[in-house]
Design a protein around this nucleic acid. Structure first.
Length: 572
DNA sequence: GCCGTTTTCGGCCCGACTGTTTTCAGTCG
């Protein structure tokens, strides 16, 4: 916990120093230190033993800050930087096309210190006077501002989920018989605007008081507690008597469309769905869990991820709800990075962690040579890595590491190594990391060429979207999925928090199991493996069953499958 | 700010793209 907190403080220091214009090497030093801290052991113990500086990237100055934080919970330098650099400036730096250099120009030359001020300065023509701010940049900034306005107040799912889970476990530890997140978190939405937690408890006051202790700006009633969480999301904690827990959760979880469609069905069953709680006549509906609540409406339990009013109610009535993918179905993962490129953990550490999660195999896919910024592997290093993987496979058997690469898709859709070298690998994830701005036709042709390459096993994070920060790139997805299907290329559902992909339910080939999906954690450290959970939620949201997912194959099945593909590649 | 060493400071990861400018600064992955 402390590791995470200090790492995030160091990252923030790095970002703020960059905005101040400090040396990029100093900025990077904080980033590196943060990475190492996440993978480091118990900091309190390291401090006692005076071994903090044994961590690579932690020197005298960093060790001092860590010690100070452990003792007081604060880092003075960070507090100072926060005072110096207003939030508006940090927002500015988040706009696409605005880095530290241009943000400094905006501040120094026309005194712009917020997105709103930038918008006004563009409007008035003032921004166009700055050297280097031409018409195209201004146009890009305008669309960046539009995106910023659209996503204001939204946060990534995981930020809210962590807070929700903490509240749930504190409630359960305090003896509440049940507690669960509701709303967008329960439905597996990629981004959310609030955290809602429902707690079943007869005497809420003591628990609410305990949860409110130490918080500021709380708004508390006899049954509820609201405040702004660490993620800056509004948090709503709502307590109900245990007998009404199911009904309340149902009401607070379904989307507006789902609840609207549910109303007439509830009415037929004699249940009123409006108001604060579902009611039967004058009395609140008795249901201690959601399954009982749906049962009272004459329906089977509908998984929260499906409650979007997109056909799930008819499916439930007709008994055709799919048996959605679940975490225990996942037997292995592809697409992970290691310290050989820009990962934070060694191959062995990643493998050991996967073993501890009960997985049978991982697919190692470090960056390819064109990704110089990420330490992409030269042909020689890729061969050397192959030997390392073989050594580890002997050591860790029967666990298996499949040796792959995340190959950049080059300008015209080519992969990043010669065929001969690709031939020594078990699999290839092909991903776009450059030229996001190509015209739709050119981008489509490029992607089709990549997925049709016989060496390509998986198309990585295919939308190019960065949630809350960047729109996806333009391409004809139908055409690309078709090309992928005919070449047996798997489409990755990237579980990396910031790169969740498209709505898979709309792709018939996936539903008909002609196109496999890979849950790719795109993990750069051990913690990245936990984003697997998010990938599963998004898959469930896309109505995916285990048959449509590559990662539900066992180790031997994957070995055979890759072997078959290899035969086809060499004979082609 | 860290590291390594040539003990006192220089090097630290890069290459392409974009939009601007007219030779390059800034951004991005």
């Amino acid at each position: 916990m402390a590791n995470e907190e200090i790492a995030s403080a160091f990252r923030e220091i790095g970002r703020l120093l960059e905005l101040k214009g400090e040396s990029l090497f100093q900025v990077r030093a904080y980033g590196k230190a943060a990475d190492r801290l996440v993978e480091a052991g118990d900091l309190a113990e390291l401090i006692r033993e005076g071994k903090l500086t044994d961590i690579p990237g932690i020197g005298k100055a960093m060790a001092e800050k860590i010690g100070y934080f452990m003792a007081t919970g604060a880092i003075p330098q960070l507090e100072e930087l926060r005072r110096e650099i207003p939030q508006g400036v940090i927002d500015l730096a988040g706009l696409s096309g605005l880095g530290p250099g241009r943000v400094r120009k905006l501040r120094d030359e026309i005194g712009v210190e917020s997105v709103e001020a930038l918008e006004a300065a563009i409007q008035s023509g003032q921004a166009a006077d700055i050297k280097g701010f031409g018409p195209k940049l201004l146009k890009n900034l305008r669309s960046g501002i539009d995106l910023w306005k659209r996503v204001r107040g939204l946060r990534l799912h995981m930020a809210g989920r962590r807070e929700a889970e903490e509240i749930v476990s504190r409630a359960l530890e305090s003896g509440a018989p049940a507690a669960a997140p509701a709303g967008g978190i329960a439905r597996g939405m990629e981004t959310i605007d609030r955290v809602t937690v429902v707690i079943a408890i007869d005497e809420p006051a003591p628990l609410l008081n305990r949860l409110a202790a130490g918080l500021t700006g709380t708004d508390q009633t006899a049954e509820t507690l609201c405040y702004t969480g660490r993620s800056e999301l509004p948090i709503e904690i709502i307590t109900v008597p245990p007998a009404r827990f199911g009904g309340k959760l149902l009401l607070l979880t379904g989307s507006a469309a789902h609840l609207e469609q549910l109303k007439p069905i509830a009415e037929t069953a004699g249940v009123e769905l409006s108001g604060l709680s579902p009611a039967r006549g004058d009395a609140p509906l008795e249901a201690s869990n959601e399954a009982e609540a749906y049962q009272a409406l004459g329906l089977p339990m509908i998984p929260p991820e499906l409650r979007e009013g997109r056909g799930e109610i008819e499916a439930a009535q007709q008994g055709r709800l799919p048996r959605l993918l679940e975490s225990p179905d996942i037997r292995g993962l592809f697409h992970m990075h290691s310290t050989w490129s820009d990962g934070k953990a060694t191959i062995e550490e990643m493998a050991e962690h996967a073993i501890s999660l009960g997985l049978e195999y991982i697919g190692l896919a470090d960056h390819s040579r064109s990704a110089g910024y990420a330490g992409g592997l030269s042909p020689d290093r890729l061969r050397a890595q192959s030997e390392e993987v073989a050594r580890l496979n002997e050591k860790l058997a029967p666990f298996r590491i499949f040796h792959g690469i995340e190959s950049d898709i080059l300008a015209e859709g080519e992969l990043d190594y010669e065929d001969e070298l690709l031939g020594i690998l078990d699999f290839v994830v092909a991903s776009i990391h450059s030229r996001f701005g190509l015209e739709r036709e050119a981008q489509t042709a490029r992607l089709i060429r990549a997925v049709q390459n016989p060496h390509t096993t998986i198309l990585g994070h295919s939308s190019g979207r960065l949630l809350l920060a960047r729109e996806p790139y333009e391409f004809d997805s139908e055409a690309v999925w078709d090309a992928a299907r005919t070449n047996d290329t798997v489409i990755e559902l990237n579980a990396h928090e910031k790169r969740l992909d498209v709505d898979w339910r709309d792709i018939p080939a996936v539903r008909e199991r002609h196109l496999l999906i890979s849950i790719g954690p795109d993990a750069h450290d051990r913690r990245g493996l936990e984003t697997l959970d998010m990938g599963i939620r998004i898959a469930r949201k896309g109505w995916l069953t285990k048959e449509a997912v590559l990662n539900t194959m066992g180790r031997d099945e994957v070995t055979d499958w890759l072997g078959e593909r290899k035969k086809r590649t060499t004979s082609a």
